[in-house]
């Protein structure tokens, strides 16, 4: 583990390895496609004129949704694999040190900072405690929830006996019935939209106002500490 040096140059650390960066942007693109097409599946566009055979609007929208969902899921599996073989920052997404006292002390400092009642906490190259909490409990868990419910719903269309239905069909009775799963899947989209809002705001704010380069870090991989 590299401790930042006291050199005249800005301290920086290679935090996001290439696969993580690639995953981040694929994931971001998938979320944009999934949220837009998903919304349009729930609230379709205005009616098309003419014969049904001339159009395939819902078909294309659903195709885009399902394709993006497959990419999202496979990318998530790849990301989980990278947590095993990548650097220690790559593992931060998948766990929260809830039992660590230091974690909660840091958490308090960051909450106070964001409420404008505390000083700027000591920056860290990894996720700060608040963002780590949100990454795991909001982003990761809702993503997994969306994958589970999404494939269960896809299994309905893929028909009984399809691998999607055999693998994920149990989700439907677990959550009551098909309609409940549709509604929860829909709400899950909104949870992820809220996460994206917080995520982008926090990253941009830290980039401008904080002492770490954050937005650029997801492109270059380096987080740089601004003196």
């Amino acid at each position: 583990m590299t401790q930042p040096t006291q050199s005249p140059l800005d301290a920086s650390e290679y935090v996001y390895e290439a696969p993580v960066r690639l995953w981040h942007w694929i994931n971001a693109a998938c979320i944009v496609v999934l949220a837009i097409t998903g919304y349009l599946i729930g609230s379709p566009l205005a009616t098309q004129p003419g014969e049904a055979s001339d159009h395939f609007v819902m078909g294309y929208i659903r195709f885009a949704h399902f394709s993006a969902a497959y990419i999202f899921t496979i990318a998530m599996i790849g990301r989980a694999y990278w947590a095993l073989v990548g650097n220690h920052h790559a593992r931060e997404l998948f766990s929260v040190p809830l039992t660590s006292k230091v974690y909660w002390t840091d958490m308090l400092a960051w909450v106070r900072y964001y409420l404008f009642i505390g000083p700027t906490p000591k920056p860290m190259f990894g996720h700060n405690p608040l963002s780590r909490f949100a990454m795991f409990f909001i982003f990761l868990l809702s993503s997994l929830f969306m994958i589970l419910t999404g494939f269960a719903l896809y299994g309905e269309g893929a028909q009984m006996g399809s691998w999607q239905e055999r693998t994920f069909g149990w989700v439907l009775p677990l959550l009551g019935q098909s309609n409940n799963v549709h509604v929860l899947h829909h709400l899950g989209m909104w949870v992820i939209v809220l996460f994206v809002m917080f995520h982008i705001y926090a990253a941009v704010r830290e980039e401008i106002n904080g002492r770490l380069s954050l937005v650029g870090a997801m492109i270059s991989g380096y987080k740089t500490f601004k003196k």
Binding site: Q6, A11, K122, G126, F225
Partner: peptide, 15 residues
């Protein structure tokens, strides 16, 4: 100016 409170370098988490 940009808020700077401490000149210390960022801490890296010990795994």
């Amino acid at each position: 100016k940009a808020p700077t409170t401490s000149p210390d370098a960022p801490a890296t988490r010990q795994e």
